[in-house]
Design a protein around this nucleic acid. Structure first.
Lengths: 241, 241
DNA sequence: CAATTATGTGAGCACTGCTCTTGCCAAAAT
DNA sequence: ATTTTGGCAAGAGCAGTGCTCACATAATTG
């Protein structure tokens, strides 16, 4: 799109990137709480006040990091999805789950930044909501594939959502997966919250008394949730190999 | 147990309580990040350094608040459990869920303190693990009731956990619910993570694009998870009325 | 070239967690 | 009853923070 025009713009873009990189480095070491604008500036060899030409305040820097983290995780999920044949629905489901967990474990502080407690009084300018939706969209993508292939065991016995929940789900469906039945989408939301609840528990140390290390529990949950949402077993299609 | 002996001990206990109360007040307003020892001291009419006689540092104060929060939430869950007749298994399940959510919504910053990102490098001295287990123990209590009554539809068709997960579940079972089958306990852990994942998403603003407000979604999830873990429907027993 | 605008500088404010010395006064020991 | 001990509050002080502002300097635009 807009090619970088002047020298200044070029320098500005580069410095902005370097600031974020250094901030990310500090974030990865000590966590968001210990991220200090002064330390970032120091490391970059500039005076702290200069940094305010690039980010109006600390929260704005953090918001930028949040958006980047959402996008990094979203990309991870999307490529995991793409790396499995679209005939192997359950395999895709599995690999997306595993990729998300792997990223979270590799970047615990960035994970905490986006799925932990919100930093200020209230978060989420519109900037964050689109990147944040990438992972759930991938999960729904798996469901759509399965639905299109006719392998999704959509629940005829499943209890229907209440009327207001149905309306919410309906609104969600039109923008995301119009063909999927409401019950399926409602279960998808449940599964989505389960995934990140499980990850947060693992990373935040809540599982220490019970299922820690949680590798096997995670694998178990993958299959249970795949069943729960109606995905076919491995043999359906040609998944096994 | 040990009655408070000297006048000093008495004063110390009281001041410790007052410090925690004031800290909790500030926590509730602005969140853990904004909790300042100096502000607490100021509000209590003492000099900031005096506060270090009672808590070695900020983290120790926060840990005390964490323990208190776990206990407050645990108590809430336990009394919700006790308030429903033990014949109405699903009713208990429901009310425990609702009570936990109500507390979380009423004390969002305390919730974030215990279920959000951990504050320092690593959290959780042993002090926190026992209070933290009170809510999951209540949920397991419901399952045990149902099992004892013979109404729990324990999954014969449910996939068995892997061997190492089985071992972990086994160890968990012996200390908590020896009679429950491993599959049930494994699902209980899934459900537990789902509950708090759902609450975190609601409180941290992750549901805004989809099912917000989430009252109906929460109610839906209650029933879905009750089914998932094998609880009987309302009519089993004499629940309806 | 001149005027404007974007960027870097350094001092400074108000705040934080935390430490240390000083003096006080209640509690235990003599 | 008097001395010693030890818990406690006070206040100064250190190093660090986010952020603002007046000022100088460089790049862009008219």
């Amino acid at each position: 799109m807009s090619a970088i025009r002047t020298v200044r713009d070029r320098a500005r873009a580069e410095l902005t990137r370097e600031i974020k990189n250094e901030a990310r480095r500090q974030l990865a070491i000590e966590g968001a709480n210990a991220l200090s604008l002064r330390a970032v500036a120091r490391e970059l060899g500039m005076v702290s006040s200069a940094l305010y030409r690039y980010f109006r305040n600390r929260d704005e820097l953090l918001t930028a990091l949040i958006v980047d983290a959402y996008n990094a995780l979203g990309e991870i999920a999307e490529s995991a999805f793409a790396a499995v044949a679209d005939t192997d629905v359950r395999g895709r489901w599995r690999e997306v789950y595993r990729a998300v967990r792997a990223w979270a474990r590799r970047h615990p502080h960035e994970y905490a930044l986006i799925y932990g407690s919100p930093i200020p009084g209230y978060r989420a300018p519109q900037d964050t909501v689109t990147p944040a939706s990438r992972v759930p969209l991938v999960l729904i993508g798996v469901l759509r594939d399965s639905w299109a292939a006719g392998t999704l065991r959509a629940g005829s016995g499943w209890p229907p959502p209440s009327t207001t929940l149905s309306a919410q789900i309906e609104r969600l469906a039109t923008s995301v997966a119009p063909e999927l039945p409401g019950q399926v989408l409602a279960r998808a939301v449940i599964v989505w919250t389960q995934l990140f609840g499980m990850l947060s528990f693992e990373l935040f140390g809540q599982l220490v008394g019970s299922v820690d290390p949680s590798d096997d529990f995670f694998e178990h949950a993958i299959e249970q949730m795949a069943d729960f949402v109606g995905l076919p077993a491995d043999d359906a299609g040609d998944a096994g190999r």
